[in-house]
Simulated assay, not measured.
Amino acid sequence: MKFKIEKYFRIFLNEEFEKLSIECPICKFKAFKTESGKKGDCFFIVCPRCGEYEISETLNAELKSKEPDLMLSSYLRRLYEFRKDDEPIGPLTTYNIDSLKKDAERSKPEYSEKIYLLLKAIEHIQEYTGEDIIVWNSSGSESNFDKAKFELFRAYFLAMTYSSRGKELEYLFHSLRELGYLQYSNVMLNLQEGFPNYINITPYGYKYLEEIRNKERFETNKVFIAMAFKPENDNIYKTIKQVLNKLGYDAVRVDKEHYTGYIIDFILAEIKESRFVVAEITDKNLNVFFEFSYALGHKIPVIPLLKKEKDEKDPFEKIPFDIKQFNTIVYENEEQLKEKLRDRIRNLFGRYKV
Rank of each mutant, 00 (worst) to 15 (best):
E81T: 15
E210W: 08
E113A: 09
L76I: 14
A104H: 05
K84S: 12
R177M: 12
E35L: 14
Q325A: 11
F9Y: 14
V243E: 03
E151K: 13
T239E: 13
E151S: 14
R10A: 13
T328E: 06
E105A: 11
S175D: 10
S107T: 14
M188E: 11
F266S: 06
I300T: 02
G37I: 01
G297W: 08
I26P: 01
S293M: 08
N327F: 02
R213G: 01
R83Q: 15
N214V: 11
E123T: 07
F153T: 03
L72W: 01
R177L: 14
P315F: 09
E15K: 13
P91E: 05
L92N: 00
L209E: 03
Y156F: 12
E339P: 00
N190G: 12
F224Q: 03
E18F: 11
F266T: 04
Y162G: 00
A31P: 08
R217E: 04
S274P: 03
E193C: 07
I55A: 04
R275D: 06
F82I: 08
F173Y: 13
A159H: 03
K284R: 15
K338G: 01
Y53I: 02
A155E: 05
I45L: 14
T161S: 07
N233Y: 15
D41L: 10
I264A: 10
I281R: 00
N60I: 06
K310T: 15
V223Y: 05
E335C: 02
V288G: 00
N96D: 02
K340W: 00
Y80M: 06
K272Y: 06
A31Y: 04
I199Y: 05
I5H: 03
F195W: 11
Y237N: 09
D146R: 04
I55W: 03
R213F: 12
L72P: 00
I199C: 09
R10W: 03
S274N: 06
L337H: 04
W136G: 03
K353T: 11
S107V: 10
R106K: 13
A251L: 04
T161A: 07
F266W: 10
N186L: 13
Y162A: 07
V354R: 13
T94V: 14
S163H: 09
F290H: 08
A295D: 02
T282A: 05
L306I: 09
S56G: 07
I26F: 11
Y53G: 00
V354Q: 14
E332L: 07
Y75K: 06
V243K: 02
K84I: 06
I236G: 01
E113Q: 15
Y208T: 02
G166A: 11
A31H: 05
E142Q: 13
G166N: 11
K340T: 04
F153E: 06
D311G: 04
K353F: 09
E216Q: 11
L244N: 00
E81W: 05
E170P: 02
N144Y: 09
I122D: 01
K4Q: 15
I345Y: 02
E270H: 05
E81P: 02
Q336S: 12
Q192L: 14
A226D: 06
D265H: 11
P91A: 04
L92K: 00
R78A: 04
Y237E: 05
K238L: 15
R217A: 04
K7R: 15
C24W: 01
I300M: 02
H298A: 10
A148K: 09
I240H: 02
G350L: 05
I319Y: 01
V302D: 08
I212E: 10
